[in-house]
Amino acid sequence: MVYAISFENYNKFLDSLIQKTDVFAPVKGKVSSFEKLKSAEEFNADVLTEYTAKNNFLKQGELILTHKEGEVVEPDLSKIKEKILLGLRMCDLASIKKHDIAMNNKYADPYYNERRKKVTLFGYHQKQCGDEYCFCQSVDLEVEYDLFFYKRADHYLVEVGSDKGKTIIKDNQDLFEESDYKMTKEDKEIDNQLKLDSHDIDDIYTNNRGWSALVKDCLACGQCNALCPTCFCFEFRDVPKQDGSVEKKRFLSECQLECFSRVAGDHIFRKAQIDRFKHRIYHQLQYFKDKFGKTLCTGCGRCIRHCPTKIDFVTKINEMKKEAKK
């Protein structure tokens, strides 16, 4: 079943949501990112945000536990507020699905799961989504959402993806109309200029010349990790408080940096930048797929777009694959 909502009603719908819950959506401020909406007008649907929404699930500085007076105190996760994420592109939605898998591997991560449970996801489709760095059509894009919006000439078409989504439509049924439109494959298409020919890259692992050509432009600044919607590697830090208690907090880690693989005694397992660079690309395209059947990378292109030297690994991988075939 597909629903339709006029632009006018859509704004009313958003405003009513904002009254009830915290709504986060792409906002074009100093930098485009997911910010808390104050009114429907602030929502800027036209940009693929520079910053992803991952901080809403993998919160930087998440309190894991507190050591207090010789005991361990667990944080009260029920205090986490419900929120709605609006305007999520396919790549950002897919990254959430991949985190669901990664954070529930053999053990479950209660902090991630609690935040995830309390978020309602509204997808947003745009045919001309990003720019010359997007390659989402070349990787696995499996998504889960509550509602998904498709922009039309004078209205949005809305697909429902969950019971939560159904309830939202029901609660606002005066704003939505039932539509007998059948969604087609074309409706869901996204145009990409960049194409990754294959994400089976096991055979080019030893192509040192090819990888070196990419790495020579790497500043090792780690921005690709920080901006990636899927990079989820994390570390803990003990933060002492003045009252004598100690908080254990979680921060995201960056595999492009030396400290990522440094162990006690100062041995560094991935000392060379080329090993670190390859680790990132292989984790994104190969390792995760070997383990869970789909690529970790969602093809959003942020790691190329915002790289100070615009390292285009996609084109280079295509080249290396061609070379390997010969």
Binding site: Q223, E258, C259
Partner: peptide, 16 residues
């Protein structure tokens, strides 16, 4: 601390 400034800058949500 042994990460470049970029890491914190990006986690603080700044434009590059």
């Amino acid at each position: 601390y042994s990460k470049p400034v970029c890491i914190e800058c990006r986690h603080n949500g700044n434009p590059c």
